[in-house]
Amino acid sequence: MSPWTRLLIYLVAAPILGGLLAGWDRRITARMQSRQGPPILQPFYDVLKLWKKENVVVRRSQNYYIFFFLLFTVFTGGLFFAGADLLLVIFALTLAAIFFVLGAYKASSPYSFVGAERELIQMMAYEPMVLLTAIGMYMVTKSFHVHDIAGHGSLLIFALPGVFLGFLYTLEIKFRKSPFDLSCSHHAHQELVRGITTEFSGRSLAMIEIAHWYENVFLLAWVFLFFAAMPALGIVMSVAVFLFMIFVDNVFARLKWQAALKSAWAVTVVLGFGNILVLSLWSGKPAAPPAVVDAPSAPVMVETTTPKLAAQPLPATTTTDRRN
């Protein structure tokens, strides 16, 4: 499949899949709370209704920010699915989030102010880990390009278990789920009414919603990347991760921003840095021996993959130890 086809599929399919995921989320959450829950298609009805509604704004310019938030979120996912540089993807993701925050600041309501501030704190909490995830993937595959990472022969999860767990932790923030639904959330509203989205209505709120759908699909695709060598496993794991997010959402109270920031950084340092440290120490050593052991005529692929495969058990076990 060419990058352009993938991009096109993403642009069309992501909002549909994202909306369905949101619908399933609401349904499963409802069942965990012993409720009937809405129809699976409810998120689409909601967005359609929002689209038809009057757009009441404090300042008209706040809508442009939200438009750019949507645009850059789609752009982020687009880059990702087209197989571009992961660092560029992260940059675009951050830029999208910044537009969202700016839109909330523009609305000049105390609730969206506090929401925007908390969103910035959340970005502080998850950005390092997201970056480390990209670096970890680079260390294993020697490429920042999503295309190369996806095409890499080995299961990244074996080399990056710590990074994967850390990434899961930040996903909880990115999905805006309890315990980290600080800045805005679908159900929680007790502190900030709707936090960052308080002052948005009608079409711009619908755009925020659609942007979240794109974002969620892109994030789950990133989870898939850890298992890209076995696509079936990758899909199963992405769904499992999504279900796990919903589960955690339902068994946690919301933590305060201080706790969110501290714990996210602790996870980043212990799991993320730890994993990468072990990886660099390990790959640093065997990087020299292959030149001695292997004949120069050996194919390049074998040369790069064999030490990786050999390296698998050790980082996996060491990081498991850290977790316990």
């Binding site: 965990m32 709370q33 012993s34 309890s178 639904d181 959330s185 007790q190 946690f252 109270a253």
Partner: peptide
Amino acid sequence: DGMGFESLFMH
């Protein structure tokens, strides 16, 4: 509900 624990609230 106040502490964002919706499922406990529902139960």
